[in-house]
Amino acid sequence: MDSVQQRIVELKMQGFCCAQMILVLVGLEPQGKENADLVQSIRGLCYGMYAQHTCGVLSGGVCALALYDFDQETLRKVCAELVDWFDAHFGGVNCVDLLGPGGQPAWICNDALLQTTEKCLEILQEHDFI
Score class of each variant (00 low, 15 high):
residue 59 S to Y: 08
residue 65 L to G: 06
residue 51 A to M: 07
residue 117 T to P: 11
residue 121 L to K: 08
residue 123 I to T: 05
residue 111 D to N: 10
residue 43 R to N: 06
residue 104 Q to W: 05
residue 56 G to C: 10
residue 27 G to V: 05
residue 88 A to T: 13
residue 43 R to W: 02
residue 114 L to I: 01
residue 93 V to C: 08
residue 123 I to A: 07
residue 29 E to Q: 06
residue 107 W to I: 09
residue 44 G to N: 03
residue 80 A to D: 11
residue 4 V to S: 03
residue 39 V to L: 00
residue 89 H to T: 15
residue 82 L to E: 12
residue 121 L to R: 13
residue 22 I to V: 13
residue 17 C to S: 12
residue 112 A to H: 04
residue 124 L to E: 01
residue 18 C to F: 09
residue 122 E to D: 11
residue 93 V to G: 08
residue 117 T to M: 13
residue 54 T to G: 02
residue 119 K to T: 01
residue 23 L to F: 10
residue 71 D to Q: 12
residue 27 G to D: 03
residue 84 D to T: 15
residue 55 C to P: 06
residue 28 L to I: 05
residue 81 E to T: 11
residue 31 Q to R: 15
residue 100 G to H: 00
residue 18 C to L: 09
residue 14 Q to R: 15
residue 1 M to L: 04
residue 58 L to I: 06
residue 43 R to S: 09
residue 30 P to I: 06
residue 10 E to F: 02
residue 54 T to A: 06
residue 63 C to A: 15
residue 3 S to N: 13
residue 30 P to L: 07
residue 96 V to L: 08
residue 67 L to M: 15
residue 20 Q to I: 00
residue 89 H to N: 14
residue 58 L to W: 05
residue 30 P to T: 07
residue 61 G to P: 00
residue 8 I to H: 01
residue 51 A to I: 03
residue 12 K to R: 13
residue 51 A to Y: 03
residue 108 I to A: 03
residue 22 I to P: 02
residue 13 M to W: 11
residue 89 H to R: 15
residue 23 L to W: 11
residue 64 A to P: 11
residue 25 L to C: 06
residue 66 A to G: 12
residue 125 Q to E: 13
residue 90 F to A: 08
residue 60 G to Q: 05
residue 94 N to T: 10
residue 40 Q to N: 13
residue 71 D to L: 09
residue 35 N to F: 10
residue 48 G to I: 03
residue 87 D to S: 07
residue 20 Q to L: 00
residue 71 D to E: 13
residue 129 F to H: 00
residue 25 L to K: 05
residue 99 L to V: 05
residue 47 Y to N: 15
residue 24 V to C: 06
residue 42 I to W: 01
residue 130 I to G: 00
residue 19 A to V: 01
residue 13 M to G: 11
residue 1 M to S: 04
residue 112 A to F: 06
residue 72 Q to M: 09
residue 89 H to M: 11
residue 20 Q to W: 01
residue 110 N to L: 14
residue 28 L to G: 04
residue 7 R to M: 02
residue 67 L to I: 12
residue 20 Q to D: 00
residue 103 G to R: 15
residue 64 A to I: 11
residue 89 H to F: 10
residue 113 L to G: 06
residue 54 T to W: 04
residue 74 T to L: 15
residue 8 I to Y: 00
residue 78 V to I: 01
residue 73 E to T: 08
residue 28 L to R: 05
residue 118 E to K: 14
residue 14 Q to K: 15
residue 128 D to A: 12
residue 125 Q to K: 14
residue 47 Y to Q: 13
residue 113 L to D: 08
residue 79 C to S: 15
residue 104 Q to M: 07
residue 8 I to C: 00
residue 1 M to A: 07
residue 106 A to V: 09
residue 36 A to F: 12
residue 54 T to M: 06
residue 49 M to F: 10
residue 36 A to V: 12
residue 11 L to N: 11
residue 97 D to I: 07
residue 110 N to P: 10
residue 123 I to M: 06
residue 16 F to V: 02
residue 105 P to E: 02
residue 92 G to F: 02
residue 129 F to W: 02
residue 95 C to F: 03
residue 115 Q to L: 14
residue 107 W to A: 14
residue 111 D to P: 01
residue 77 K to C: 04
residue 99 L to Y: 08
residue 97 D to E: 09
residue 74 T to K: 15
residue 108 I to L: 04
residue 57 V to L: 08
residue 44 G to L: 04
